[in-house]
Design a protein around this nucleic acid. Structure first.
Length: 583
RNA sequence: GCCGAAGUAACUCAGUGGUAGAGUAGCUCUUUCGUAAAGAGCAAGUCGUGGGUUCAAGUCCCACCUUCGGCUCCA
């Protein structure tokens, strides 16, 4: 049995092989780093003035196959700093690494295979010539040296390898299959959304069918959040700049905001990039008592962010979006409990949709770079402590990530994996001890003193855009009945059944079922094909037999076997299926 | 924004310097069909946009726009 560690070694070893082939073919290329990653490996290489594209892959792969024949093993050599500096003297990246590693008294090692030597800390297979066979280079990309956009961008080549050809073929086949379930492809085929050059990049146009999904989700959120003690509010899409100076967002995020409108009152108005300050203003609309807390204000708030063009991605990263947003104002004593409830609300939503593959990411500040963060030390420590306490009370796996906190506090993101293997941060949550103070929010406590409330930020359903993008892939377009844009379609076999079909249509429509009557000319077979392709859950076939017997022949999506029922039974069964949302 | 690639009809795609093509969708007519594509015809494209090279550009060159694969970023 080959374990994960073996796969890691196999992949890292192949990155050496890739590097070896590249330096043979491109003698000026400067190697940097070549780690194994989850599904393969990459090597970052500075090609200097040479350009490389996927067209060059077959040539490189060929060279790799050729070189590996002489790679009997990876031979380890301990080297001193001065020897290492000598050996890699033409390569500024390796020199940087050598300087860095030798600083913390790290023993430098060079691994030799065939005639190729690379600075490396190890982790290889034993018999490269036998094991490094079933690999493939996948894509070429740019990557900043050491991950910082201040550095030079160098070329990254991605590839993968498996122990057997069969596993490699399977992996490649799955990559192809995933493309079929891509939300951008399905969104077009199922006519859910569109974008238009004339409107602008990253601005989503919801088509009638996609809008049904959007409204169903929104209604669900309204019902659910009402039951969980939220009150709904509505706030405008623009606001004066002052609000974002108060929050501290403006200096920090201005390049990611649409530029302001200057009005003749001398004010600058911005499109809102988030809803928080508006909700704070609602909190502030009158004096608050401890008796009102926790106060939970919720809104599907439309926000605009001027995301960099290269970051836009289907529905997942857009410039205009409607956020399932809410802010909970509570006392410090209530905060943990409220945050636990927020986690539980997430669990309820995800369970209802059959989403199982998710985890939490606790985003902490980078202790090396405190300038980036506002607020005082105590506040950061306390916010983190409260959130950790809350997370302990739910059963969701969590990973920690330093350096990715918001500027005003740590946060907990829900990361969901879509069925085609992409991961998305769908919801960002915070116990915020910073903004209450900034905005001068107060409540009068039992003893008559004024206190500042804790603010909890949460967005379990993310934004309509990202969440529906995720759902399209999660369901592969096969939406459950309550979300299906068209729930049933009536297919009369010939024109003679049109009268009966119209009667059925009227009844179903009156029962609030999203039904279409396909009574135009064309073969029944073709209509069934088309209904299957649109993934309509329920096809109602009507021929002479059904008219005579006053019945319906019902074909379910993806299932050739029909059942016979009456209209009333049909309506009841669809209604039952719709209500399955509430688990 | 950065590195790389791509953009031809509504959609999927063919077209390597010499008169813009196919399938699907659409429209018209015929067909009235029993569980995933009935037949014929019609219409549809400033070949992403703008420059340039050439007797001649979808095709070659430059710039820009948009999309895609990544990087960086995501309040």
């Amino acid at each position: 049995m080959k374990d994960d560690n073996y796969l890691k070694h196999l992949r890292h070893s192949t990155s050496h092989l890739l590097a070896a082939a590249v330096v043979e073919l491109y003698p000026d290329a400067k190697l940097t780093l070549g780690p194994a990653i989850e599904e393969g490996f990459y090597y970052d290489i500075d090609f200097g003035n040479d350009k490389i594209s996927e067209e060059d892959f077959s040539k490189i792969e060929q060279k790799m196959h050729e070189l590996v024949k002489s790679w009997k093993e990876f031979e380890k050599h301990d080297v001193s700093k001065s020897d290492a500096l000598k050996e890699f003297k033409g390569n500024k990246y390796k020199i940087e690494l050598i300087e860095e590693h030798s600083q913390d008294d790290h023993q430098l090692t060079v691994y030799e295979s065939g005639s190729f030597r690379d600075l490396c800390r190890g982790g290889h297979v034993d018999k490269p010539s036998e094991e490094l066979k079933h690999f493939k280079l996948l894509s070429v990309a740019g990557a900043y040296w050491r991950g910082s956009e201040k550095n030079k961008m160098i070329t990254r080549i991605y590839g993968t390898i498996f122990p057997t050809q069969k596993e490699l073929d399977e992996y490649l086949k799955n990559l192809e299959l995933a493309k079929l379930h891509d939300h951008r492809k399905l969104g077009k085929e199922l006519q859910l959304f569109a974008v238009s050059d004339e409107v602008g990049q990253g601005l989503i146009l919801w088509l009638p069918k996609g809008n049904i999904i959007k409204e169903e989700i929104e209604n669900w959120a309204k019902d659910t959040e009402k039951a969980w003690g939220y009150q709904r509010v509505t706030t405008p899409n623009i606001t004066k700049s002052g609000l974002y100076y108060t929050s501290g967002h403006l200096p920090y995020y201005q390049k990611d905001m649409y530029p302001p409108m200057k009005l003749d009152d001398g004010e600058e108005y911005f499109l809102k990039p988030m809803n928080c300050p508006h909700h704070h203003m609602i909190y502030k609309a009158r004096p608050r008592s401890y008796k009102e807390l926790p106060l939970r204000l919720a809104e599907y708030g439309t926000c605009y962010r001027y995301e960099a063009s290269g970051e836009l991605f289907g529905l997942m990263r857009v410039r205009g979006f409607a956020q399932n947003d809410s802010h909970i104002y509570c006392t410090q004593e209530q905060a943990v409990n409220e945050f636990v409830q927020v986690m539980k609300l997430h669990e309820y939503y995800y369970k209802s949709l059959g989403i199982k593959d998710y985890y939490l990411e606790l985003a902490l500040r980078d202790p090396e770079n405190k300038k980036k963060y506002h607020g005082n030390e105590e506040m950061w420590v306390l916010a983190e402590k409260l959130m950790r306490e809350a997370v302990k009370r739910v059963d969701i796996p969590m990973v920690e990530k330093t350096g990715s906190a918001a500027f005003y506090g740590p946060k907990i993101d829900f990361i969901i994996k879509s069925s085609i293997g992409r991961e998305f941060a769908i919801s960002t949550n915070q116990i915020d001890l910073f903004m209450g103070d900034r905005f001068g929010l107060k409540y009068t406590d039992k003893d008559g003193t004024e206190k500042t409330p804790v603010i909890i930020h949460r967005a379990p359903l993310g934004s309509h855009e990202r969440f529906i993008g995720f759902l399209i892939e999660h369901f592969a377009g096969v939406f459950p009945m309550w979300l299906a844009p068209v729930q049933a379609v009536i297919i009369p076999i010939s024109d003679e059944q049109q009268g009966y079909a119209a009667t059925i249509y009227e009844k179903m429509n009156a029962a609030n079922i999203r039904v279409e009557n396909w009574d135009e000319s064309g073969s029944m077979q073709k209509k069934i094909r088309s209904a299957e392709k649109q993934k309509i859950p329920c096809m109602i076939i009507i021929g002479k037999k059904e008219v005579d017997e006053k019945t319906l022949s019902v074909r379910s999506r993806g299932n050739k076997d029909n059942t016979t029922s009456t209209v009333d039974e049909m309506v009841d069964s669809i209604k039952a299926s719709i209500s399955e949302r509430q688990l």
